[in-house]
Write a protein that binds this DNA or RNA. Structure first.
Lengths: 230, 230
DNA sequence: TAATTTTATTTGTAATACAAAATTAATTTT
DNA sequence: AAAATTAATTTTGTATTACAAATAAAATTA
């Protein structure tokens, strides 16, 4: 199950790395597709696929007849390409830092704007989480993510939604890693569930400030739990 | 200067729209590349380019021999593809909402962690902004962005950095639109400059809370200015 | 019925060719 | 000689055809 990688993926990763390392500094011209193809020993096809990924990520831009150039403000990395390893505590810390910034505000906005349908969606997610928590085996990470996701959706801010969505894959993996070895969790399950219920209640009552506070509390407790790991 | 669009771009936009509209719901299988090619009346090449963009954005996933499927949690849109039109006030509002959430926290973190080099970078950007402001003609949008960007970089959080970078193109355009017709700005220039200096000073003194407050003040004033437009 | 093999489908890559845009070199004009 | 125009070259964008490799569907066999 070695998940064989596509050639174009390998190449886009390689090229991105070269750009990050400074082999192709911002503003510089990349080699032509033919040259890259020769260099990597492949045809133009996977080269073009790789370049199109970098283009979509805003790392390079190409002009027909001109060539491909590294963008002046090349995004530092493709979020989809971040791989969290078990020992990769830095990424998890940074991710949690962003959660502490985004989620309380999202809860605030959700309390302001949520539609009845969105409230229903949150309640469904919470019920799912409750079911998962009664089962000793399950961790409920998916339900957890779905709950937080439903709150984000209720903010009605497409940019906020996009940011969280682009983080979700990363978030999911980070959550699994942090929850997996955590035996303390079982004792904290009821407390965690209560925290989720409190957030939802505040959103239901349309109390933005309260929702924000409940979210802060939840994240603070989650962080305590997290700090035991590191 | 009509900026002719590539076929693959047109198609990726079309496909994305179809997905958003529900023509291809999450989890469903897309038509084969051959079918798509026939449908759009092009060869497989631009189809593959379009699909690779959607793949990079996490909207779809493909398996050799299997086909392409819409991801269960397809990102709602590609940030790079958002076009802000002059009458597109909604996007600008949402963008500003995100700035209010992210930037004060970024200033906080920057005050905590900035290296001397990063402080230097911020000061350079501020000087640039001062020069631009003395010139009646120039608006200083680029310098403005560079200043805020230098603060973000000093947070040392790669996820934060990535988020802002991915927003920067959008931000730049929004800023130009909001500043362009604003004649009041000239009177507010000194005030705005002072606000920037205050933020930098707090970061220089390594006073996180103060930096956050100064950032909030700055954004509050900017929002007042903005509210005149809408 | 269940497991295995075969067949067909579909994406991934290759090679070649040409169109279209941009860059560079050459030419002409002033 | 300098500037403008034109021509030639380079380079990306798209098309066509072909085949490899992985998956999914169908047929076969136990």
């Amino acid at each position: 199950m070695a998940e064989k990688e596509k050639i174009s993926q390998t190449i886009s990763r390689e090229l991105l790395n070269m750009i990050e390392v400074g082999k192709f500094p911002p503003g510089s011209k990349l080699p032509t597709e033919m040259e890259l193809a020769a260099h990597f020993g492949v045809s133009r096809i996977p080269i073009r696929e790789a370049l199109s990924v970098l283009r979509a990520a805003g790392v390079i831009s190409s002009r027909q007849g001109g060539g491909s150039y590294v963008e002046e403000r090349a995004a530092t990395f493709l979020l989809h390409q971040i791989r969290i390893e078990n020992d990769d505590k830095e990424v998890i810390k940074h991710l949690f830092e962003m959660r502490k910034i985004l989620e309380p505000e999202a809860a605030y906005l959700a309390a302001l704007r949520r539609t009845p349908e969105q409230l229903e969606q949150m309640e469904q997610a919470l019920k799912w989480l409750e079911r998962e928590f009664t089962d000793e085996e399950k961790m409920g990470t998916e339900a957890d993510i779905e709950f937080h996701r439903s709150i984000i959706l209720a903010t009605q801010n497409p940019i906020m939604i996009h940011m969280i969505e682009s983080l979700s894959a990363l978030y999911e993996r980070a959550l699994k890693i942090t929850l997996e070895p955590n035996l303390v969790l079982k004792q904290r399950r009821k407390a965690a569930l209560k925290e989720h219920q409190d957030i939802l209640l505040a959103i239901k009552m349309e109390e933005p400030e309260l929702a924000k506070i409940q979210s802060v509390i939840h994240l603070k407790n989650a962080e305590k739990k997290l700090s035991l790991l590191f």
